[in-house]
């Protein structure tokens, strides 16, 4: 839809369209942000679960249980913080840092 005002249109007919457009864009922006944040959080959670396998326990089930406890706490926090921090994208940056930390924890030898 064209954003330019046509000369014959009154202000009252344009305003609702503009508002609708703005609303749609805001929703799309939020959806995009949520999708990116969820993908990052999911990847971080997956890496945390893989890192949990390096815990010094013999029982595999115990390791996944402990990994699960961390994930259940971490995932919602990451999603909320990532979605809340829009200004200067610090939410996404935080998500990236968390994801990077999880990768590093998997790579670096302990």
């Amino acid at each position: 839809m064209s954003r330019t005002k046509s000369p014959g249109m009154t202000a009252s007919s344009v305003q609702p369209d503009t508002r609708k457009n703005q609303k749609r864009q805001a929703v799309l922006r939020r959806l995009g942000l949520l999708a990116v944040v969820c993908a990052l959080s999911f990847l971080t959670a997956h890496l945390v679960m893989l890192d949990a396998q390096r815990l010094p326990f013999e029982d595999m089930r115990l390791k996944t249980d402990l990994g699960g406890m961390v994930i259940a706490a971490l995932f919602p926090v990451l999603v909320l913080v990532g979605f809340a921090g829009r200004r200067h994208w610090w939410g996404l940056i935080l998500g990236l840092v968390a994801c990077g930390s999880a990768i590093l924890a998997g790579i670096l030898p302990f």
């Binding site: 679960m49 949990a52 396998q53 996944t64 990994g67 699960g68 406890m69 994930i71 259940a72 706490a73």
Partner: peptide, 18 residues
């Protein structure tokens, strides 16, 4: 909510690499 999710987290995120 927390304990239920933690107990079954391994079903959603298995300990094998994707």
């Amino acid at each position: 909510g927390y304990t239920g999710t933690a107990i079954h987290a391994r079903a959603l995120l298995p300990a094998e690499s994707f």
